[in-house]
Design a protein around this nucleic acid. Structure first.
Lengths: 215, 215
DNA sequence: CAATATATTGACCAAACGGTCAAGTTTTGC
DNA sequence: GCAAAACTTGACCGTTTGGTCAATATATTG
């Protein structure tokens, strides 16, 4: 995941940062494959190469680890669509967003899975701040799409449904990779496979917005 | 869920059937909100109004309850699309399938959630028979869509991607209902809301197949 | 170098969990 | 009406888990 990439030695707090990173990385894998309740601190510790008591020295509780993982994940959700404006070309902005979301599904499928499970279970562990942030992000994006429609730049589609459609179709390739693998003869989708999916989704979604996929 | 709807009294095995039904119904709710590992036999028992030992008399183990729930859920997946043929009109068959899948998301969101979690975790608890059944169903449906394309009845889209698109977009409204509720001011989608989603998805998906939504 | 903060770790504990069992009660089949 | 089968249930048990703690080691700093 993100966390800290290369941690220099002998820098103030470097031990802490290095262990934080190791623990979060291990925790992401464990939570994604076992779920919150199925994950054990012991397994996170083993994957991180630390004794369990040491993990709980950095994160006071399993809940604490999970919250750190969630906030780490949310930083992945950032995209170029965050800064789209009513002046932009919707075809460019939307197709780029679709491809970015799909790329995250390909590169960080575990993050997508943890987020999906959190939503399926009712998002009870998601803090109110995070929820509020999601709402304001969503409303501002909706407003821009609505402006595009008013300006005659795209067809009159429900902006919320359009967003849900993009999320559903792109995240599906991370969350349901096991199903896709079963149906595709046990083979996981490779980079070219994702490229084809991106082409398909851009063509499909943009065309239903009355847009053409840009070069 | 399905199980047994009204169980007549004093019918051979009626006690067993009634309790089976109570337990499965309770288990579906618990598994959907807690996941497999988060669910406890105790909680299933309480929701079913039975002592824990009695639940384990009918289902030998927690695993046994879960398998029964999974197979109960899979019967919901049946749809009119199972019997579609190359002679059918793709516009009719596909739009009907989309609406049926969406109706299941609306009516049995818990079933969709359990299935989604099973896939996210890697489908390790899904039996090989069930997987084989999924594969053969999928391949036969792919073949029909391919025939439609060859017959010039619809545009040349990747049939597998089309299926994934339909599943992703329709199941999203069950699995991510918590997120949708957060973003929609805390309100759950009502029946009319689902109707609108169905209209939107049919128009979008069919149009990218070069089809028009039938009346 | 001394003293103070930070980090490491094995041992331990209470709670919760899945599952068993034996002792009863009720229902069924003849 | 009675024996056998099916059902019910409280009590119990071994295991696992999240979390604590005290003892020790290692860094940091003035």
């Amino acid at each position: 995941m993100l966390v800290q990439k290369s941690v220099k030695k002998n820098v103030k707090g470097s031990v802490r940062q290095a262990n934080y990173g190791k623990i979060i990385k291990a925790a992401v894998t464990v939570f994604a494959t076992k779920g919150y309740q199925g994950a054990t601190v012991q397994e996170v510790a083993e994957k991180a190469g630390l004794p369990k008591a040491n993990v709980l020295y950095y994160f006071k509780s399993k809940q604490g680890i999970y919250e750190a993982v969630l906030s780490d994940i949310l930083s992945l959700w950032n995209s170029s669509f965050d800064h789209a404006t009513a002046q932009d070309d919707p075809a460019v902005a939307l197709s780029r967003y679709i491809r970015e979301k799909l790329e995250i599904s390909r590169t960080y499928p575990e993050a997508s899975k943890i987020f999906a499970m959190e939503m399926i279970k009712g998002a009870e562990q998601l803090s109110d701040e995070i929820k509020a942030g999601m709402v304001s992000w969503f409303q501002s994006r909706i407003a821009i799409i609505q402006q595009w429609i008013q300006d005659g730049k795209m067809a009159n589609v429900d902006p919320a449904m359009l967003m849900f459609q993009i999320w559903a179709t792109t995240q599906h390739y991370a969350d349901f990779s096991a199903q896709i693998s079963i149906l595709k003869d046990g083979k996981m989708l490779n980079k070219k496979g994702f490229q084809d999916v991106g082409d398909y989704l851009c063509r499909s979604i943009l065309s239903s917005c009355g847009l053409k996929v840009p070069e």
